[in-house]
Amino acid sequence: MVDGLTTTIEIASLAMAVWCLITTFRDRPMVVPHLVGMAVLWLLVIAQAVVSTVQMAGGERPAETATFIGYLATIVLIPPACATWGFVERTRWGPAVIAFACLILPVMMVRLQQVWDPAHV
């Protein structure tokens, strides 16, 4: 895992969450810019997954490999799944779905970092 990337994902995710919460409170549905934002966030997450996989292939092992892979797979799934699920709902509750996903994501990134290197955090 790359620390800078983890921090970037956490900040980007929280920014998305704030944006989507504002949209929810303004009683607007999700629009295409929200989807673009989620796509960028997803690319960042995928980048972290690819880097981690390369590192693992290179012999670097997380403290708990199975748990790490489980978390990583879940984290990679969440942005596209929630973006799709939220976009289908054409009310204020669409962005609310994304806001939830973007609040969960940083928490899971912290957990992922802990599983990767328990001594580091």
Partner: peptide, 13 residues
């Protein structure tokens, strides 16, 4: 639909 959509998302996660 509506709030139920958020509920389903939370449950799915």
């Amino acid at each position: 639909s509506g709030p139920g959509r958020v509920l389903v998302a939370v449950y799915a996660v």
